[in-house]
Simulated scan of single mutants.
Amino acid sequence: MSDWIANRRVLAAFGDPAGAKAVLAYLSAYGRAAATITAVSDRKHGFYEDFDCKVQPWPARAAQDWLKDKDILLTGTSVPTGLELELIESAARVEVPSISFVDHWTNMAARFQSGARRILPDRIAVIDEQAGRVAHREGLPAERVCVVGNPYHEYLRAWRPKVAMEGFLASIGVDPAVPYLLYAPEPLSSFNLDKTYGFDELDGLRLLIKARRARGRGDVAIVVKGHPNQHHALFERELAATAEQNLVYVREADFNLLAHGAAAVIGFFSNSMIEARLLGRPVIRLLSLLRAGAADPLAGWREGGWTEVYTDHELVDALAAALDDIRKN
């Protein structure tokens, strides 16, 4: 894939965190082939520091000015849509080719929809053949879709912590001496997806607390990692109102480090579940809450390796197994 940017002046643009990671990982792997790289985002994410690429704020200037003297545009994709579509449309006007990374199997067409208009890049880079089939079903033109994998997945396979875990955990209010479960849900309520799936992120936390109590493991902490699109007050009010101990809500922290130290990473459908597996961590997916007939958005992930729980009893057993494993290690 290095030939996409070889000897070219690159503009990279992204908003959504998963799209940003795909683009930045691609540039980390192949960026040396480019003539120059300019990166811009309408969001700020802590993981930018993990990549050797300065990210400038959007909109410091107009879209056409960002594209001046550029040979190619690389973008992530966002739902709801963001700066990527404005730049893709501007790139087409000035005949700058564009490539967009799609990091999931869901909302393929929605990522390129602005009101009644569909705005497409020259290439749509998807993660696997299943994603390609979904793209075709949703009406994206086959000649623009190419299967390339997700560059961030390859980055994660080689990832290792660069800081001491004890200091990192203490800095975010987590006792390094206490084993913890990492709850990393997507912000279902932020996008009214609770109506689609039949539950929201608070339901998952309550289920997890119930299972911890049933196992008699109040000594094990539950660390809740807020998604970048999460309405943080939702969780903060919930934790403030409960008498449960060893509950910590973290708005912003390095997910890879949090997952690395966890007995297990727990959630539903987000990319965090895949990322935790690629980091070699046990993953428990709470599917007992899923409304009958609702599709599992991660059904396209073929590598598996996680535990899917469909009953309260299965969750208790999965937590016990994860905690037993961390004691052995």
Results as ranks from 00 to 15, higher is better:
residue 104 H to F: 09
residue 106 T to C: 07
residue 109 A to N: 11
residue 109 A to K: 14
residue 109 A to D: 12
residue 110 A to V: 05
residue 110 A to I: 07
residue 110 A to H: 12
residue 111 R to C: 04
residue 111 R to I: 03
residue 116 A to G: 09
residue 117 R to S: 15
residue 120 L to H: 06
residue 122 D to Q: 12
residue 123 R to T: 07
residue 123 R to F: 09
residue 124 I to E: 04
residue 127 I to S: 06
residue 127 I to K: 15
residue 128 D to E: 05
residue 129 E to A: 15
residue 132 G to E: 05
residue 134 V to M: 05
residue 137 R to D: 13
residue 138 E to L: 08
residue 140 L to V: 11
residue 141 P to C: 04
residue 141 P to Q: 00
residue 143 E to H: 14
residue 143 E to Y: 10
residue 145 V to L: 09
residue 146 C to H: 08
residue 146 C to F: 08
residue 149 G to M: 09
residue 151 P to D: 11
residue 151 P to S: 07
residue 153 H to E: 11
residue 155 Y to K: 08
residue 157 R to W: 08
residue 160 R to A: 13
residue 161 P to T: 01
residue 165 M to D: 08
residue 165 M to Y: 01
residue 166 E to K: 01
residue 167 G to M: 00
residue 168 F to Y: 15
residue 168 F to E: 00
residue 169 L to R: 00
residue 170 A to T: 02
residue 170 A to F: 04
residue 170 A to C: 06
residue 171 S to N: 01
residue 171 S to A: 02
residue 175 D to R: 11
residue 176 P to V: 02
residue 177 A to V: 01
residue 178 V to T: 14
residue 179 P to I: 02
residue 179 P to Y: 08
residue 180 Y to K: 02
residue 181 L to Y: 06
residue 181 L to D: 01
residue 181 L to A: 12
residue 182 L to R: 04
residue 182 L to F: 00
residue 184 A to F: 02
residue 184 A to E: 07
residue 185 P to L: 10
residue 185 P to E: 09
residue 186 E to H: 07
residue 186 E to Q: 14
residue 187 P to H: 05
residue 188 L to H: 04
residue 188 L to R: 00
residue 189 S to G: 11
residue 192 N to R: 14
residue 192 N to M: 13
residue 193 L to V: 03
residue 193 L to I: 03
residue 194 D to H: 14
residue 195 K to P: 03
residue 196 T to H: 11
residue 197 Y to T: 07
residue 197 Y to E: 08
residue 198 G to K: 13
residue 201 E to K: 08
residue 202 L to P: 04
residue 204 G to K: 05
residue 205 L to Y: 06
residue 205 L to H: 02
residue 206 R to M: 07
residue 207 L to W: 12
residue 208 L to R: 13
residue 209 I to D: 10
residue 213 R to K: 15
residue 214 A to I: 04
residue 215 R to C: 14
residue 216 G to D: 14
residue 216 G to I: 00
residue 216 G to T: 09
residue 217 R to G: 10
residue 218 G to K: 09
residue 218 G to V: 03
